[in-house]
Simulated scan of single mutants.
Amino acid sequence: MPAKPSDKPDPPAEKPHYHGHRERLRERFRSAGPDALSDYELLEMVLFTAQPRGDMKPAAKNLLKKFGSFAEVVHAPETLLREVDGIGDASAIQLKLIAAAAGRIAKGQLKARTLLSSWNDVIDYCRTTMAFADKEQFRILFLDKRNQLIADEVQQTGTVDHTPVYPREVIKRALELSATAILLVHNHPSGDPTPSQADIQMTKAIIDIATPLGISVHDHIIVGRGGHASMKGLKLI
């Protein structure tokens, strides 16, 4: 005899375990704020958008194991991000979007203020945009007579431990923009922001050309994962 069809409905399919975990994270973020979440939990939430299905905790922990911190993860090069287990194109782009948003916010804060009256914003911006780069970059902030930002330009990008800088090109660009002052910034991918002898000599060469033309060099800031150094603060210029 054929079996009679059951009158009982099939039990509902069990939701994957990560569904509840995601909702619990969102609720904790809503109720207690971002400080209530660890770095890997914030990374999980960032990755939810890129990967709507799946447990993102292992990928988040893999990222931190490789790069060290939330900031270092989002500023890591895309090619290195994609080498991490669980991170594909969509996830890498999502992480770089966070880095771009942080840089845009920091730059907007600078533009809204007189630069030298908001020194902490200057340092935050420099560290956000450059401290975690894998190659040296030489950036110039061009200022007007009220010390407000005219332009922010990366003039050179070099290797892991050297960037070629041409003092006359720096001053030529300042004259083109009618800048009366400049702030020099570069990063040390090694993480140690201590100025090298070459950094000091290059800065003095720029000052020697700028001074007779009425252009002030306010400072040369070096940033790295380990912090920042001000040549003026160290009395090197």
Results as ranks from 00 to 15, higher is better:
Met1Arg: 00
Lys4Arg: 10
Lys8Gln: 15
Lys8Trp: 13
Pro9His: 11
Pro9Arg: 11
Pro11His: 06
Pro11Arg: 06
Tyr18Gly: 01
Phe29Val: 10
Phe29Tyr: 13
Gly33Lys: 09
Leu43Asp: 01
Met45Asn: 03
Met45Ser: 02
Thr49Lys: 10
Thr49Trp: 10
Gln51Lys: 14
Arg53Lys: 12
Asp55Phe: 07
Lys61Thr: 12
Lys65Glu: 15
Gly68Thr: 12
Ser69Thr: 14
Ala71Gln: 10
Val74Gln: 03
Ala76Asn: 00
Ala76Gln: 00
Glu78Lys: 09
Thr79Gln: 03
Leu81Gly: 05
Arg82Asp: 02
Asp85Phe: 07
Ala90Met: 08
Ala90Asp: 14
Ser91Lys: 08
Ile98Phe: 13
Gln109Val: 15
Lys111Tyr: 12
Ala112Gln: 13
Leu116Asn: 06
Leu116Cys: 02
Asp124Trp: 04
Asp124Gln: 05
Thr128Asp: 01
Thr129Gly: 00
Met130Asp: 04
Phe132Glu: 11
Ala133Ser: 15
Ala133Tyr: 08
Lys135Met: 14
Phe138Pro: 06
Asp144Tyr: 07
Arg146Tyr: 08
Arg146Ser: 11
Gln156Ala: 14
Thr157Ala: 13
Gly158Leu: 01
His162Leu: 09
Val165Tyr: 02
Pro167Asn: 09
Glu169Ser: 15
Glu169Pro: 04
Val170Thr: 15
Ala174Cys: 08
Ala174Lys: 01
Ala179Ile: 04
Thr180Cys: 06
Ala181Lys: 03
Asn187Pro: 05
His188Phe: 04
Pro189Cys: 07
Asp192Asn: 15
Pro193Glu: 01
Ala198Ser: 04
Ala198Val: 15
Asp199Pro: 10
Gln201Lys: 12
Lys204Gln: 00
Lys204Thr: 01
Ala205Met: 01
Ala205Lys: 03
Ala205Phe: 00
Ile206Trp: 08
Asp208Ser: 02
Gly214Lys: 13
Ile215Gly: 03
Val217Lys: 05
His218Tyr: 14
His220Asn: 02
His220Ile: 09
Arg225Ile: 11
Arg225Thr: 14
Arg225Tyr: 05
Ala229Met: 06
Leu236Thr: 00
